[in-house]
């Protein structure tokens, strides 16, 4: 009897764990917006062209004004996404890429790193050629979000979307 009770107890312990649903990881989708100065003549970029502007391989807009790129901190989820999906480089490779451009005389300085979303929006809004990527949302009137491959942030098929998996 005691053995049966013990076996029943063991089954109830293991059984209860087998009966439990596995913990579902929650997923969050973060949409990133590419912002430029409100007066910029650019409204739409292909994803391929965006990559070239972010690498500063294209250093001028079609109107020949200079591209002024503002980077985000390496520690941010945004920059990690950018390294993987847009740059296709490690952080070390990206830094060498920018230093190489400086060494060729193609750019004068490594693009500035700006931590706060509000600050980067303000800087892009002040510089005619400003370019940055931020988490999509309300934007000040001095900047606008570009369409990428013809899609606006939040629109179905918009490419700059990151899925973040969080364990619940």
């Amino acid at each position: 009897m005691t053995i049966k009770l013990f076996i029943l107890l063991l089954c109830s312990l293991f059984g209860s764990s087998f009966d439990k649903e596995p913990a579902l990881a929650s997923q969050e989708q973060v949409v990133y917006a590419v912002i430029v100065h409100i007066d910029s003549k650019i409204d739409d970029l292909s994803l391929s062209d965006l990559k070239k502007y972010m690498k500063v391989d294209r250093r001028h807009w079609p109107d020949k004004s200079s591209v002024i790129l503002f980077q985000r901190p390496l520690s941010s989820a945004l920059q990690k996404y950018m390294l993987e999906e847009i740059y296709g480089m490690t952080e070390r490779q990206l830094r060498r890429h920018f230093v190489s451009l400086m060494n060729k005389g193609s750019i004068g300085a490594i693009p500035s790193v700006v931590k706060e979303r509000e600050m980067v929006c303000r800087l892009v809004g002040k510089k005619d050629g400003g370019l940055a990527v931020v988490v999509a949302g309300d934007l000040p009137k001095t900047v606008k979000a570009l369409k990428i491959d013809g899609k606006s942030p939040g629109e179905k098929g918009y490419p700059l979307v990151q899925t973040i998996v969080q364990d619940s």
């Binding site: 001028h60 020949k64 200079s66 400086m102 005389g105 750019i107 004068g108």
Partner: peptide, 14 residues
């Protein structure tokens, strides 16, 4: 020592 200078959008000295 690498020095790069610009005067406006068009002119670069190196």
């Amino acid at each position: 020592f690498v020095i790069s200078g610009s005067m406006g959008e068009r002119l670069t000295f190196f």
